[in-house]
């Protein structure tokens, strides 16, 4: 039974989605809110995991996250269309398109330059949104609750329905990502991290591999941003602020590059620690998070994903050794 689930990605996605739904039905609304938030942010982290597989880290993923949220909010408010699926797909596609364009330029950079270039772009967006009074300036904008294929749930069912919606999207994206990671291109992305020179001398364009992954990561961040906009009902420029991007990197490091479930798990863990620590240690929750990350780096350098992948060999990022 377990083997059948692990060897069939669609079945695994279905089982995960069903389990999450079953748990969700037992949760109070305020936990459902946090869970929806965690799943939505998990999509952003999943995008960063795709970059991490190539050895790339972006300190500016908040840009696409924020842009996705604003696309969702502005289009929803301007057109009156409140359909959740339509709005979040628009958020994802919009960010994916921008990612594809920016990726062409950013793919010329590596390491810290790549990370900081992204950070700079995200801070430009943040600054622009602060000054843009037409989109609410520093106050941000509010969004009406979403509808689903023409159905507007009453307040009573709003949280559980949105949670179900996020679960379905997360399961679908998770499944697609899993198929991608095992694909020709997905394996080549791992090879980018190890040795770009060899790939070029095999006649493969490393740049195209990077642009593809960057665009997908941007799209996932946009999708996550759109979902967060809908669940929270309010969006602010801080979505693009560097600390938001930093949190996503934090969750990505916690997740590690090897597992999709870990990307969502790390996000959920992060949000839980923040929630619990914020509740009981309101002045020291960042300290808790810091200690938490430190421990995970020391004892799980490949993230919590390495726990699940324990039976497989580890892929330490420093396995490069004398590659050159």
């Amino acid at each position: 039974m377990i083997h059948a689930v692990t060897s069939s990605p669609p079945l695994a996605a279905l089982v995960c989605a069903a389990a999450l739904m079953a748990v969700g039905l037992m949760l109070p609304d305020w936990v459902l809110f946090t869970a929806s938030l965690a799943l939505a942010k998990g999509l952003v982290v999943l995008g960063l995991v795709l970059l991490l597989r190539m050895g790339a880290v972006s300190f500016g993923q908040g840009m696409y996250y924020c842009l996705g949220a604003y696309i969702c909010g502005l289009v929803g408010n301007a057109t009156g269309v409140q359909d959740a699926l339509f709005l979040v797909i628009l958020s994802g596609l919009g960010c994916c398109a921008l990612g594809a364009v920016l990726g062409v330029f950013l793919s010329a950079y590596r390491g810290v330059f790549f990370a900081m270039f992204n950070l700079a772009l995200s801070m430009i967006l943040y600054g622009a949104l602060l000054k843009a009074t037409s989109v609410g300036g520093s106050d941000g904008i509010g969004i009406a609750p979403p509808s689903y294929f023409g159905l507007s749930p009453s307040d009573e069912y709003r949280s559980i329905l949105f949670y179900a919606f996020v679960v379905v999207i997360a399961a679908g994206v998770g499944l697609a990502t899993r198929i991608y990671m095992r694909s020709e291109l997905g394996l080549a992305a791992l090879a980018v991290r190890d040795n770009e020179i060899r790939l070029e001398y095999l006649g493969l364009s490393v740049r195209r591999v990077i642009v593809f992954n960057y665009a997908i990561a941007a799209g996932l961040a946009g999708l996550g941003g759109g979902l967060v906009a809908l669940v929270s009902g309010h969006i602010i420029p801080e979505f693009a602020y560097w600390t938001t991007s930093g949190e996503f990197v934090f969750m990505t490091v916690l997740s590690g590059p090897s597992s999709i479930v870990a990307a969502f798990g790390a996000t959920a863990l992060f949000e839980t620690v923040r929630l619990v620590a914020g509740q009981y240690l309101p002045n020291a929750w960042q300290l808790m998070l810091g200690a938490f990350l430190l421990l995970s780096i020391l004892f799980l350098p490949n993230g919590i994903g390495a726990l699940a992948a324990g039976r497989r060999r580890t892929r330490a990022p420093d396995a490069k050794e004398d590659a050159r």
């Binding site: 394996l187 791992l190 090879a191 040795n195 020179i197 060899r198 001398y201 892929r315 490069k320």
Partner: peptide
Amino acid sequence: QVFTGLTLMEN
């Protein structure tokens, strides 16, 4: 110049 973090098969 090979991919040291991947298996021979994956390389």
